[in-house]
Computed example of a mutant assay.
Amino acid sequence: MGKKHQPKADNLLAQNKKARHDYNILETYEAGIALTGTEIKSVRAGKVTLRDGFARVRNNEAWLENVHISPYKEGNQFNEDPLRNRKLLLHKREIKKLLAAAMQQGHTIVPLRMYLKHGYAKVLIGVAEGKKNYDKRETLKRKDQQRDIQRALKDRY
């Protein structure tokens, strides 16, 4: 299993809540992301959408695809394509683990969060396994029960 990485709430720039609903996350990895100057400014402003994104390993390099980073307002001709593929910065052994995990049937690599760490943009990616519809309903039911329990305990104490 990969390490559990939890960024501080104030550094969180974007979160993919749909990923935890649609997938079981098996392991997570923290990756740097190669961005241009106007892209990092847009990321710092929180103009990122991770919802439909995924990662792919090609030629022993990890790439983040289909993640939308809005063009920077003052960027002019220096703005890049909002949906361009961006290189993920990982160690070789992590890339090999990701490749092995993604080759298994039904597994994919999805971005979970984007945040700042020591001034650098980081992406928390997870190796995920797709959920069936009945699993999604079971998860929602369990979540509602936990919320009811917490509400009852709060009223009690």
Rank of each mutant, 00 (worst) to 15 (best):
E39M: 07
E39A: 09
Q104P: 00
G37E: 07
K131W: 12
R113I: 00
R20N: 10
D148C: 02
G32H: 08
A128D: 08
R56D: 09
K73I: 11
A101S: 15
G53I: 03
Q105R: 14
L112I: 03
E27C: 06
K122F: 01
T49N: 15
E74A: 12
L90Y: 06
K92N: 13
G2I: 01
K97W: 00
E80A: 13
H118Y: 03
G75T: 02
E39F: 05
G130Y: 04
K4M: 00
R156I: 01
Y72R: 03
T108M: 08
A152N: 12
A152G: 08
H21F: 13
R156W: 07
Y29L: 14
T49G: 00
D22Q: 14
K4N: 01
P82A: 05
G106W: 07
L153C: 07
N85G: 01
E74Y: 12
R156F: 10
D52H: 13
E129A: 13
Y134R: 09
T28P: 02
G75M: 05
N133K: 12
I95W: 08
L13G: 02
G32Q: 05
E74D: 15
R142C: 00
F54Y: 15
I69K: 07
V57K: 09
K122R: 14
R147G: 02
Q105F: 04
V67D: 06
K17W: 03
A19Q: 08
S42M: 06
A14S: 14
F78K: 14
E138F: 06
R86T: 02
E80G: 05
